[in-house]
Amino acid sequence: LINQAAIDAPFTYIPTTANVGYCFNFAPEEGVLAPGGIQTIQISFNASIAGRFEEEFQFNVAGSPTPAILTIKTVAAVFRECLGFHVSKLCNDCVGFPYSKTCRLTNPSQAPLRFKLRVSDDGTQPAVSSFDQIRNDSDPSWTDGIHLYMEPREFTMNPRQGIIPPQGHQDIEVTLCSNTVREFYRRMLVDLEGFGSGVASLTIAARCLVPELRVYPHVLLYDECRLKVPYERKFLVVNDTDLPGCYGLVPQKRMKDTPVFYSSPQPCGIVQPHSIAEIPVVIEAQTLGKHHTSVL
């Protein structure tokens, strides 16, 4: 502070709580400047939030109609290298089922951080999981495949956003549910409120595979059947792979001239790795003669 007048200038700092003013301290906060005198003011700054901001501080001078104003432009002392993951890559082996892995987002700074997570190039329409699909055996996706009107959102994070306390951490569960056979190489980005977008990132390398399931026997013989009397036989779905698989009987569109009706109390389901699922099939012959139909 400089007193350019010819008389003494008593001054007093006017405290403020606006915006981030409470993060600043001034010493001394009051005093008297002699004519032509200079007073050095020490400013202490302790950031409680991250971001760029501009703050105005006022000093009241006795006898002056307007205060002396000091404007401070600053960036909160939270830098990119202060926020990060404890791993550099997250690898998923996804087989069309929701598959999750956990990573940890750390905040070694002295201020709480409000974050949001997103995955680069991910879509917006929710992906369809196998667990959702097997709840409806008549879903058209069993015969026509899954139709998406927009790119699917195949990655989810829990939590997707939140606040990490000073020198704290947040465990993040990353789940991939892919609807296509493909390989992924994406980045999970961290947006920091008040500071910027993509201040930290984690590479996600993933692949989606579909296991090869075998059926035994290939033909179910029902021999002689009476008209409109139910008969049951069973076949096996064998999964010799290390991955879970999903099966579903083709939904039957019954017409007036359909010769054989078929159904199953287990029309769709999941076959775990290195296991066998036993599937019952019930038929009812509607007309005389020899008939055959495909159920898978």
Results as ranks from 00 to 15, higher is better:
261 F>W: 08
163 I>M: 03
261 F>S: 10
33 L>T: 03
221 L>V: 07
255 M>W: 09
129 S>A: 00
69 I>K: 07
39 Q>T: 01
45 F>K: 00
211 P>C: 06
171 D>E: 04
22 Y>D: 02
280 P>C: 01
14 I>M: 15
236 L>T: 05
54 E>G: 04
182 R>W: 05
146 I>G: 13
133 Q>I: 04
51 G>L: 06
119 V>C: 07
240 D>F: 03
262 Y>A: 02
110 Q>C: 10
72 I>D: 07
294 S>P: 06
284 E>T: 11
254 R>K: 14
236 L>R: 09
20 V>N: 14
251 P>A: 03
14 I>S: 15
150 M>V: 09
103 C>Q: 01
98 P>Y: 11
198 G>W: 04
216 Y>A: 09
243 L>V: 05
255 M>F: 13
295 V>R: 01
92 N>R: 10
150 M>I: 07
76 A>N: 09
81 E>D: 11
213 L>T: 02
290 K>T: 15
171 D>S: 05
141 S>N: 06
58 Q>M: 05
125 Q>Y: 09
91 C>P: 05
206 A>V: 11
50 A>M: 12
172 I>F: 04
255 M>V: 10
65 P>W: 02
75 V>A: 12
240 D>A: 03
125 Q>R: 07
240 D>G: 00
289 G>H: 12
180 T>C: 08
177 C>G: 05
119 V>P: 03
139 D>A: 02
250 V>M: 15
223 D>I: 12
114 R>I: 04
167 Q>R: 13
95 V>C: 08
40 T>W: 11
73 K>N: 09
129 S>N: 03
12 T>R: 12
177 C>R: 12
262 Y>L: 08
156 T>L: 02
166 P>W: 05
62 A>P: 04
87 V>Q: 13
237 V>P: 04
214 R>K: 11
193 E>V: 13
148 L>Y: 01
10 P>H: 15
206 A>Y: 11
248 G>H: 11
103 C>G: 00
39 Q>I: 03
153 R>P: 00
46 N>M: 14
177 C>L: 09
270 I>Q: 05
94 C>N: 15
128 V>I: 15
49 I>M: 12
97 F>M: 12
183 E>Q: 07
89 K>P: 02
162 G>K: 06
57 F>L: 01
206 A>D: 04
207 R>I: 09
7 I>N: 07
